[in-house]
């Protein structure tokens, strides 16, 4: 039983989340009610979308530390446009956030592809640059709820078949990225490049270009999340989502995505994000200080990476024929 669980990370996570829910429900039965679970899901939607982008990047043996800063910059840009020109249709703003995010991601990708600068350095640098740019644009001022148009704020809240659009958007993204990862040559190239970059070249895959594509994808998802974030919380300022890049990476690591690349799945990233989301939403209701969330996710990251490392450990080579037969 344990063996099957260790082998199938997604199943292990489902069990862990279920156990978590049971524990919470023992102390606070209302938590398990469908309406509340839907609320938890909605609350985790942005993290899920971001984790999907980070997953693509980590799959290719890279990392994107600039996602939260990218989110904040794109969120600020669309909020500012909305406050100055409320007439611009919201879908156009969503598209703009998406494109701007992809552009910011492509800067990361280009530096890594064309100049071969280590991803951690590039995204550490662009993280501070993107944050600083928000300040340059806004002068440090906040864009508050009353400066945003109603349509701008209403979109993620509007309900469709009982669920908010925000939730539906994350479902759409999960489906979309799932198709990209499993059914397109690009998605399979993400797997191949991270799993064995050497061999990937032999099969005709351009490693640098594939990484570039991964960063464009993570950037686009960060941009989309930027709009969702500012419209949902109805505020935009320099420091929104500060430090959120770590939550995103945490969701991926918990979801079984190997930092060494090549291993990971869409369900893993989603479940990793949900795991964090459940914890975050459960803490207040079971009377644990919400301040404990950070320490818990830190502990979970360490446990997750230790579990992943065990599962990934490769068998040594077998020379004795006798041993092979076992």
């Amino acid at each position: 039983m344990m063996k099957i669980l260790m082998k199938n990370r997604e199943l292990l996570l489902v069990v862990a989340i279920a156990a978590l829910l049971v524990l919470i429900t023992l102390r606070f039965p209302a938590f398990i009610e469908p309406a509340n679970l839907a609320r938890v899901y909605n609350d985790t939607s942005i993290l899920i979308i971001l984790a999907l982008g980070q997953m693509a990047v980590i799959m290719t043996r890279c990392i994107d530390l600039s996602m939260a800063a990218n989110l904040a910059l794109c969120g600020m840009v669309v909020a500012m446009i909305n406050s100055v020109a409320p007439g611009v249709p919201v879908p156009a703003l969503v598209l703009l956030a998406l494109l701007l995010g992809a552009f910011l991601g492509s800067i990361n990708g280009l530096l890594i592809w064309k100049l071969e600068i280590p991803p951690i350095v590039v995204t550490l640098g662009t993280l501070t640059i993107y944050r600083g740019t928000i300040f340059l644009l806004s002068g440090g001022a906040w864009i508050n709820a009353h400066q945003m148009s109603d349509a701008f704020k209403a979109l993620p809240r509007a309900t469709l078949a009982g669920l908010p659009v925000l939730s539906w958007l994350s479902v759409l993204m999960i489906a979309l990225i799932y198709i990209v990862m499993t059914r397109t040559p690009l998605g399979r190239a993400f797997h191949a490049v991270g799993g064995n970059p050497h061999a990937a070249v032999y099969t005709g895959i351009d490693v640098g270009r594939t990484r570039f594509a991964a960063y464009c994808l993570s950037g686009a998802l960060a941009g989309l999340s930027g709009y969702l974030w500012v419209s949902r919380y109805a505020v935009a300022y320099v420091d929104i989502a500060n430090g959120f890049e770590l939550d995103i990476i945490a969701a991926c690591v918990i979801g079984g995505i190997s930092i060494a690349g090549g291993i990971g799945s869409v369900p893993g990233a989603v479940l990793g994000a949900l795991f964090l989301g459940v914890i975050k939403n459960a803490l207040p209701v079971i009377n644990i200080s919400p301040f404990a969330q950070m320490a818990i996710s830190g502990t979970v990251i360490i446990i997750a990476v230790a579990v992943n490392a065990r599962a990934e450990k490769r068998k040594g080579r077998v020379i004795l024929k006798k041993a092979e037969a076992h």
């Binding site: 770590l246 945490a250 950070m294 320490a295 830190g298 230790a306």
Partner: peptide, 23 residues
């Protein structure tokens, strides 16, 4: 001791140590 990658471990302890301060 466990042979884990330092970048992930220290991202984890980064959360853990500051998280303890928050608690």
């Amino acid at each position: 001791g466990l042979g884990l990658p330092s970048i992930v471990v220290t991202i984890g302890t980064m959360s853990l140590f500051r998280g303890l301060s928050f608690i």
